[in-house]
Amino acid sequence: MNERARGNSILGMWIFIATEIVFFGVLLLSYAIYRWAYPYGFAEASGHTQLLKGTLNTAVLLTSSLTMALAVREASTGRPGKAQSVWLLATAALGAAFLVIKGFEYRAEFAEHLVPGPGFVYPGPLRGQVEIFFKLYFTLTGIHAIHLTIGCLLVLWCARAARAPIEGVGLYWHFVDLVWIFLYPLIYLVKRCG
């Protein structure tokens, strides 16, 4: 790809990231409104999230950002060799690991009857507020997971195709990580003291 096309592709991805910031921003706004309205419910609900898996997943994604950055660095030398493929595959593998761990999380939440809808069961007066928390939780993490899956596919595409826009894909991947960086404390750490 010539220099100008590369520049266009990177600029295009930054603008696309702006749209994604807005997209997730609206979801976070919904979260903020309801957390502000129902602080006790959100605090209690957050205590029922899987802190260990969530924290592990955060570490996984942060590491995947590192491997992605290293892959892009290889590409920028102009002579990407096997190293680039290794880093890309590592990134995709870490992404897949995230999804697997998330899957276990969802399974645990299903078993605890915390999936909103007719199957939702929760004792205590804050039931409705806790359900709202989990509605937002599943929506936020579900949409994040969809973005992550697309990211994995894009990364695999880069590993296979020499002409793929790896810097752009890198930016997308880091963005998916950025979203999770904010989701982590908002989901898992609302109230962990006492």
Partner: peptide, 8 residues
């Protein structure tokens, strides 16, 4: 660019 994601 900035508005459409909101309605999406």
């Amino acid at each position: 660019i900035l508005g459409t994601p909101v309605i999406a």
